[in-house]
């Protein structure tokens, strides 16, 4: 897949258009932004991995508390280091794009929130999640008492089968009732 530094070949572009929710302009913009992260001499390869640290310098991700989880979820690296290829990057943008379906958005949201990658959101995942939302430092965290009450309430509401964890279908059930999710789960370059 000979990709030049400045532009994508036409057939690849149309393939990406078919496989992602992105428009042509968005893919080109993504390619431009991605190439900026790569050193000039390395730009020729399409399967090049960009380390997570470099990805996280993008202003769109820099201030996101879930930035590391996002990289880990979308990375196809065998090293589990969160590094992204251009195609991974497109997957990311596609899931976060305007036109992506609720289903795919909620699927990826679930994986982002599943900090230990075990397929369910248990108490520890929820605690991590709440800490990300409120800020990690000691004075911004909820008190242990509040945290316990909150997690109990969350499980009470969304753990339909009462097994002590929130699984994907329960999660999607909650998400499907939140009108603002599609508009807030969005990263646009």
């Amino acid at each position: 897949m000979g990709t030049t530094a400045s532009q994508l070949p036409k057939d690849l572009l149309s393939e990406y258009q078919e496989l992602t929710f992105l428009t042509k302009q968005e893919i080109l913009l993504a390619h431009k932004r991605f190439s900026e992260l790569v050193a000039k001499e390395e730009r020729s390869s399409n399967s090049l991995r960009v380390p997570m640290e470099k990805i996280l310098t993008m202003p769109e991700l820099k201030s996101n508390p879930f930035r590391k989880r996002i990289c880990h979820v979308f990375s196809t690296s065998d090293m589990k280091d969160g590094s992204l290829t251009f195609e991974d990057f497109l997957d990311l943008l596609s899931a976060f794009s305007d036109s992506a379906t609720l289903e795919i958005k909620s699927h990826y949201a679930f994986r982002i929130f599943d900090f230990d990658d075990d397929g369910t959101l248990d108490c520890r995942d929820l605690e991590n999640l709440v800490n990300c939302l409120t800020g990690e430092t000691d004075d911004t965290r909820l008190t242990p008492e509040e945290m316990r009450q909150l997690i109990n309430n969350i499980l009470e509401e969304s753990d339909i089968d009462k097994d002590g964890t929130v699984n994907l279908s329960e999660f999607q059930h909650v998400i499907s009732r939140s009108p603002d999710f599609v508009s807030s789960f969005k990263i646009v370059l």
Binding site: P59, S63, A109, N153, E157, H173, V174, I175, S178, I187
Partner: peptide, 21 residues
């Protein structure tokens, strides 16, 4: 209000479009 506010707030509260510290 079939599903309460807490899970909604925690699961969907973050706005991923925010930029800047």
């Amino acid at each position: 209000k079939a599903v309460g506010g807490y899970s909604m707030l925690v699961f969907t509260g973050w706005d991923y479009g925010l930029q800047g510290g």
